[in-house]
Amino acid sequence: MTGHDLAFLVVALVTGGGALLTVTSKNLVHAALFLAVTLSGIAGVFLVLAADFVALVQLVVYVGAVAVLFLFGLMLTRAPIGREALDNQNRGLGIAVSGGLFVVLSVLVIGAFGGTTAAEVGGPRVGDIGMVIFNTWVLPFEVLSMLLLAALIGAILLARRETGDSGEEQAPTRIDMGTAPSMEAERMARLEGGDDQAELTAGGDPGPAAGRGEGRA
């Protein structure tokens, strides 16, 4: 057993443990954090296999962005965060699907690379990747970037529409705090009609509404 194997073993254990805890954790945020551990572990696996570029991409995309967005989403929406019990009736199905997927992938990977060592394969150089992407696979690359652009614009549009006509979409909020009738009437008027709202932001920066949309996007 070389140092290389040992390093792989450690990283693999962290990854596997993280994955297990991700699905068994009863706290959604904890699960998301364990997912981040798992994804970092995968970056470690890539590193051990001398694929440093892929490892860094894994880190920046999955840990730095995807995991953060997961947490962001969990905290922004009213998802059951905290010590609420998190459970699912489809446990059996989940185990079956993931087990099957594991078997299929293992067979495929062993069939393709079985017998070769990491040293033989060698990590791909950035230059090589660039050559491949911009020569052989340039069309799929461009199509993919168009798709991402469309997704980006769609997200912005969605976010804008949500706040754009909030007067109608906003559910009525009733607050009973025993205030004077006039105050109450004023409040109701504000909540029902857009007039007062318009007056409040008149001459003001229309930014906050749009800005918040962007922030959410």
């Binding site: 570029f53 880190l59 840990v63 730095g64």
Partner: peptide, 15 residues
């Protein structure tokens, strides 16, 4: 990949 490494690792601080 020094530059890429620096920016990638730095993004983890967010977490």
């Amino acid at each position: 990949l020094g530059l890429f490494y620096a920016l990638a690792v730095g993004s983890v601080t967010t977490l």
